[in-house]
């Protein structure tokens, strides 16, 4: 096996971890408020652009810019839930999906208008260098992104296992009626889920931005997240992480096969969607998702 293979494998794991993070945010919204959010990628996009703007136009130190953009995204997520999603509670699923699609193209166009279509590099935040890991050259930015992903994943695990808010959210996801009878405000939980999801997505957006530069390509993460969460099971946070890692690795394996043997081109982009179709045909509820059983 060539070093290229291992390099791509490692790359797959790093990207996969990011897919996993975005997937978790997606699943969080789905579990808490039963909304399939087609605008998840825009959360990354907006968060990264805001942070970039604070850093370049206002010359803020990274930490402050980062924290302010996180606070902004939390508010933004809550606001989107309050203004757009709340009136649609109880509407058919088609309307809810459509409204998030509408949000997605609205904000994508707005961001392109405000910040242009070209990729903008982040101001150098950390000294970037090549690090040697097990004989492979890895950019330190990638290590940073993996560390960030791990921190987020552990944070999610802690939140849902031990914190009061996380437990209340799980109760809401289990049954809204029972949760509200126990004194949990279902409305607050919905808003909170959107806020957390938007903020954590923004972290992922900033991390990708530091590595690759900020551009409208970030919103593509929101689409790539679908194969990952479907593979893992739409309502399993753990599944989202596993699915994200698998899709990330698969993508890069396809890239390896493509560049070494097949030369078909563009397999990297398209393989996840073939995987998606296959999973939907043979195991629609994914690896860890709940089976919906219906009897007529």
């Amino acid at each position: 096996m060539s070093p290229l293979f291992f390099e791509l494998l490692l790359n797959g794991l790093i990207i996969g971890a990011l897919y996993g993070v975005v997937g978790m945010c997606f699943v969080l919204i789905y579990k808490a408020s039963q909304v399939v959010n087609f605008a998840q990628g825009e959360f990354l996009l907006i968060g990264a652009w805001i942070c970039w703007w604070l850093l370049t136009s206002w010359h803020m130190p990274f930490l402050w810019g980062f924290l302010i953009s996180l606070a902004f995204m939390t508010l933004f997520g809550i606001l989107v839930q309050l203004v757009v999603l709340r009136p649609l509670i109880g509407e058919p699923i088609i309307s809810v999906i459509m409204v998030t699609i509408g949000l997605s193209i609205f904000f994508q166009a707005l961001m392109k208008w405000m910040f242009g279509t070209f990729a903008q590099p982040f101001p150098p935040v950390f000294a970037l260098s090549q690090v040697n890991v097990l004989g492979l050259h890895v950019q330190s930015a990638y290590l940073l992104s993996t560390a960030a992903s791990l921190v987020i994943m552990v944070g999610f695990a802690w939140l849902f296992k031990y914190s009061r808010i996380g437990l209340a959210m799980r109760a809401t996801a289990f049954s809204q009626q029972i949760a509200s009878s126990l004194g949990i405000s279902v409305r607050q939980m919905f808003a909170l889920a959107w806020g957390i999801s938007a903020a954590v997505s923004a972290v992922a957006g900033v991390v990708v931005g530091i590595v690759n530069g900020v551009s409208s390509a970030l919103s593509y993460f929101g689409i790539k997240v679908f194969p990952a969460v479907i593979l893992g099971g739409l309502d399993s946070i753990f599944g989202a992480v596993v699915g994200g890692l698998i899709i990330g690795v698969l993508e890069n394996l396809a890239q390896f096969l493509d560049s070494q043997y097949l030369n078909w081109g563009n397999l990297y982009e398209i393989v996840p969607f073939y995987v998606l179709i296959v999973i939907l045909m043979i195991k629609p509820y994914g690896l860890f998702g709940t089976h919906e059983i219906e009897r007529v």
Partner: peptide, 20 residues
């Protein structure tokens, strides 16, 4: 062009909320 895309998005959202 962006304004047009935004209007498409906005009209979808507004119709779904106010005139489903």
């Amino acid at each position: 062009t962006y304004l047009r895309e935004m209007l498409i998005g906005a009209s979808i959202i507004l119709f779904l909320i106010f005139e489903p």
